[in-house]
């Protein structure tokens, strides 16, 4: 097998970014999704029906006949400025509804995957 193409040495440089994790009740999933869609993040992950223990005791995962009471977890990775915009939108929400968010430092290899498009100005509030 002959191949005369020369490969560039692959670089595994890590780029620092911020990660946000958000856990809210199912009824607020729509709100958080719109906030993320609008924030400039390039994408996010949703886990539905997560279980765990919190301020209000142990929370079970999936209920058969109630999709609103379950917990939903989001996570997204972006530049600090974008993450700050999400934090600004969630802080007032958590004054009224239960939920948590965590922001941490993280690193990614393929930086271009995480730089969202420029935020369009003047859209829907």
């Amino acid at each position: 097998m002959s191949d005369d193409t020369t490969y560039e040495p692959t670089e595994h440089t890590l780029h620092p970014l911020k990660k946000i994790e958000i856990i809210v009740r199912g009824e607020k999933e729509e709100f958080v999704r719109e906030l993320l869609d609008d924030s400039g993040v390039s994408g996010y992950t949703i886990h539905r029906d997560v279980a765990g223990r919190g301020e209000h005791g142990f929370h079970e995962g999936r209920l058969l006949f109630n999709d609103r009471a379950g917990l939903v977890m989001f996570f997204a990775v972006a530049e600090e400025e974008v993450i700050q915009g999400i934090v600004d939108g969630l802080t007032p929400l958590f004054e009224k509804s239960s939920g948590v968010m965590f922001v941490s430092d993280t690193q990614v290899v393929r930086l271009d995957k995480f730089l969202g498009e420029e935020d369009e100005a003047g859209g829907a509030a």
Binding site: F31, L35, D38, I86, G89
Partner: peptide, 12 residues
């Protein structure tokens, strides 16, 4: 006004 803040206040 920050859009994200406004949105959260309206949601509440």
């Amino acid at each position: 006004i920050k859009r994200s803040v406004l949105r959260a206040r309206i949601e509440n």
